[in-house]
Design a protein around this nucleic acid. Structure first.
Length: 564
DNA sequence: CGAGAGCCAT
């Protein structure tokens, strides 16, 4: 026979657990709304709660800084009735995420007690903002360390190019997990130490998804796409990031059809393409100048609402520009809400490629009005614009501005551009004097521009110098031989021409014909020099004559085109 | 429960 008072207490317990269950459900809701970027909705749930626990307060606190409202978080923090360690940890992480590491440390220092997560959060904060001494100090002071503390520190060293220190600490770690190994492998890859990455990768007891992905990137950086594919095929459960790594590898190494195929295979495998997938596909479309495919990718971006993502817009601008549709590039550029440095660099580069110098300058000025400081890439785009339109004077002016006003250091690419500009305008001596400032990596292209210009401006002496230097770097460079023999030919030095031809035969150097292609309607047409296989060749030649005559009659342009 | 990681734009 149940007694009444027992029943009452049972009911009380039941009622209590029901309400705590409801509170917990609301807390979860605040958390997920906050993460989804809907601070307003999260706030509404919080405000309408009849009772709250400390978890509710922590959830709304986190929701605020996750949506870029750190000040809101601070106010909430101050009004929490009973703070726990997680409230402190959350406000610390919030400060770090929103660019206030000093503020984070103030909270950290005044905490009544800390757990390992507090120490780790602060450690990551210092590492992210490059406060290296403070991070090392904190790492020493930590009462206990776990695999996360060690891994974070190793990663921090790698990101700051302290590779030796990273390895030392990695070797000292009491325990390693999948992330620790991945951090080391990707650290080596990031720092162009492929051999070390490979060695470590081979040492791994179990090759995990993360490390394999890092290794794919490593192989692709070295141009070893086939090995990257082998590693890719090893992965059992491929996720979006690993697909993206392989796809990007193909696109960056010129295997663009393969990249686009992989995009389709990824979808078939049931993995959803994300922004990184679309960006790499767009890169592939740009290289192949596939406008239709590029438009399809643009449509996919709109469908998945990724078209408001600035990096994707920048990729779209490049794609449209390289596919010849500058109008679409402009449309995408105008649609970007927050135009940053990269967006301006991209549109300037696009105008440069199209030889629209006026818009290059206009975009540069607009950029300055928006208080965005140009960087090395901006000036490379400006210089390449000068190159396309033959602005010798302006190019030197930009070069000077870059150094004197913005304190930027010109790189090989900048000097290479100057060499190209001076070469094209016939200032061959000046051009060759700039080549000394160029690193081996870019030297090839610079000698190439000089050599080309020596042909146009009939300079045998410098042409020989350029060709010799080019052949020193690449003895199989067919272009160097052909160009040199052309220089001799136009100077009437037939003996020398024959000598070069003989040398070519002896060394087994073959000139592969260059070819190009363009997309008309839905078809890709490709063509090469001397190709007369087209069924409508007669009409094509007639039309070319008509166009050439038209250009010649127009006094403004001297195209230098000769048709027989 | 929390804190570390791999892919992507000029």
């Amino acid at each position: 026979m149940p007694n009444l008072s027992n029943l009452r207490s049972l009911r009380r317990v039941y009622k209590h657990s029901l309400s705590s269950f409801q509170v917990r459900a609301q807390n979860t809701k605040i958390g997920s709304l906050g993460r989804a970027g809907n601070l307003k909705a999260a706030r509404k749930v919080f405000d309408e709660m009849p009772e709250r626990d400390v978890v509710s307060w922590n959830a709304i606190l986190t929701a605020h800084w996750q949506n870029r409202d750190l000040e809101g978080s601070k106010r909430i923090f101050d009004s929490i009735p009973e703070r726990d360690i997680l409230s402190w940890n959350s406000i610390i992480t919030g400060c770090i995420e929103n660019g206030e590491p000093e503020q984070a440390f103030e909270y950290f220092a005044s905490m009544p007690e800390r757990n390992i997560a507090s120490w780790n959060a602060m450690l990551c904060g210092f590492l992210r903002y490059g406060c290296f001494d403070k991070a090392e100090w904190l790492f020493r002071e930590m009462p206990e360390k776990n695999v996360i503390s060690y891994t974070a520190m190793v990663d921090g060293y790698m990101r700051h190019k302290e590779i030796r220190k990273a390895r030392e600490l990695f070797d000292k770690m009491p325990k390693r997990n999948a992330v620790s190994w991945a951090v080391m492998v990707s650290g080596y890859v990031e720092n162009d130490m492929f051999d070390d990455a490979k060695k470590l990768f081979d040492l791994m007891p179990q090759k995990n998804l993360l490390a394999c992905t890092a290794m794919i990137t490593g192989y692709c950086k070295e141009g070893m796409v086939a090995y990257a594919r082998e590693t890719f095929d090893l992965i059992q459960d491929k996720d979006a990031v690993s697909w993206n790594a392989m796809l990007a590898g193909y696109a960056q190494n010129g295997h663009c059809e393969e990249a686009l195929k992989l995009h389709i295979q990824m979808v078939r495998a049931g993995v959803r393409p994300d922004h990184a997938t679309l960006i790499s596909s767009l890169t592939a479309c740009s290289s192949l100048a596939l406008l239709q495919q590029g438009r399809i990718t643009h449509a996919l971006a709109i469908k998945t609402m990724l078209n408001s993502y600035t990096p994707l817009c920048n990729a779209l601008i490049t794609m449209y520009s390289k596919c010849g549709s500058m109008r679409d590039s402009e449309l995408v550029f105008c649609g970007i809400r927050c135009r940053g440095l990269v967006s301006y660099n991209t549109i300037i580069g696009a105008y440069a490629q199209h030889g629209n110098y006026q818009n290059v300058i206009a975009s540069f000025e607009e950029m300055q009005q928006n208080r965005i400081d140009p960087d090395e890439t901006t000036f490379l785009a400006l210089l390449s614009a000068c190159c396309y339109v033959g602005q010798v004077k302006d190019s030197l002016k930009w070069f000077d501005l870059m150094v004197s006003k913005y304190n930027l250091t010109p790189q090989s690419e900048h000097y290479g551009c100057i060499v190209d500009i001076l070469s094209r305008s016939g200032e061959l001596e000046k051009a060759s004097s700039y080549i000394k400032k160029i690193s081996n990596k870019a030297e090839n292209a610079a000698w190439g521009s000089l050599l080309g210009a020596c042909k146009t401006h009939s300079n045998v002496e410098l042409g020989e110098l350029a060709a010799n230097n080019l052949l020193k770097l690449d003895s199989q460079s067919s272009g160097a031989y052909v160009m040199l023999s052309n220089i001799y030919a136009s100077a009437g030095m037939w003996g020398a021409v024959n000598k070069v031809r003989r040398l070519m035969r002896e060394k087994g150097v073959k000139k592969l014909p260059g070819y190009s292609w363009l997309e008309i309607g839905n078809k890709v047409r490709w063509f090469t020099v001397g190709d007369a296989s087209h069924p409508e060749m007669v009409h094509i030649v007639r039309e070319l004559h008509r166009v050439t005559l038209h250009m010649k009659l127009s006094k403004e342009v001297d195209v230098g085109l000769e048709l027989d």
